[in-house]
């Protein structure tokens, strides 16, 4: 437990200090939402209908930004060797890294999204669904992203490979997340889409944790 906490806190500190990770993702998310009205035009109906997809695409790309820093630096500087030789199982190493990534990326986006979504003329009554969908879906993005980071660690141009692995696997989150916001904007019940988002994150937690740990084990062999 001590090693898990130490790794979690260290990754959070690194993400907040290094000038990349957390602030970069949050800034990127806000920027995409803020630029959308400039690109699509000021028409409220158009922005409102595009908002669910834009919010989720922005969240997906923003979480992708910090992923290269989740595993690769530890591989390059030998910290991963230290972790592999420690008593902490690799599945818990992955869990600590996912948690740190989510707390410094996904959670920040969940907080920011309801604040910036009105720029896309999202209804006030839909803002809780924006936050809820991101709260339920972004953990899944972090799990899948970390698995992708583990698979692509040590590979030349790993960032491109990472995006190619992660983005297609995150399509369900994009569909259910945008679907939930869409539903509430059209007066429908968003709960079904939200439950599917939760299921996506739960499945990702199990499968991606095991896959990431296996990738780290096989990384050297």
């Amino acid at each position: 437990m001590r090693a898990f906490t130490a790794l979690l806190l260290r990754d959070i500190v690194l993400s907040l200090r290094s000038g990349g990770g957390a602030w970069l993702g949050a800034g990127f998310f806000v920027l995409i939402i803020a630029l959308a009205p400039l690109g699509l035009g000021p028409e409220p109906a158009l922005l409102k209908s595009a908002a669910p997809g834009l919010i989720w695409i922005a969240a997906l790309l923003a979480t992708l930004l910090g992923l290269e820093r989740v595993i690769e630096p530890d591989l390059q500087d030998g910290t991963l060797d230290l972790l592999r030789m420690s008593a902490l199982p690799l599945e818990f190493v992955v869990l600590a890294k996912v948690l740190a990534h989510w707390l410094t990326n996904g959670l920040v986006i969940c907080v920011l999204a309801p604040l910036v979504s009105p720029m896309l003329f999202v209804d006030a009554k839909a803002l809780w669904v924006v936050a809820a969908s991101l709260l339920l879906g972004t953990p899944g993005l972090s799990f899948i992203g970390t698995a992708g980071a583990a698979v692509s660690a040590g590979v030349r141009r790993g960032g491109v490979l990472l995006a190619l692995i992660v983005l297609p696997l995150n399509i369900p989150a994009l569909i259910f997340g945008a679907g939930a916001i869409n539903a509430v904007q059209h007066g429908s019940d968003p709960r079904q889409a939200l439950l599917l988002l939760a299921a996506f994150s739960l499945i990702a937690a199990v499968v991606a944790s095991l896959a990431a740990a296996a990738a780290l084990r096989l990384n050297e062999d």
Binding site: R2, A6, L7, V13, D77, G78, T79, D81, A87
Partner: peptide, 30 residues
């Protein structure tokens, strides 16, 4: 749990202080 391995790479993070690095190593090693 019985071996120390000091590799080529130095396991030092640019943004962590020396004390923070060694505290982290101590926590990981138990």
């Amino acid at each position: 749990q019985s071996a120390h391995f000091v590799a080529h790479s130095d396991t030092v993070k640019s943004s962590l202080t020396v004390k923070e690095t060694l505290r982290f190593h101590a926590d990981i090693l138990g």
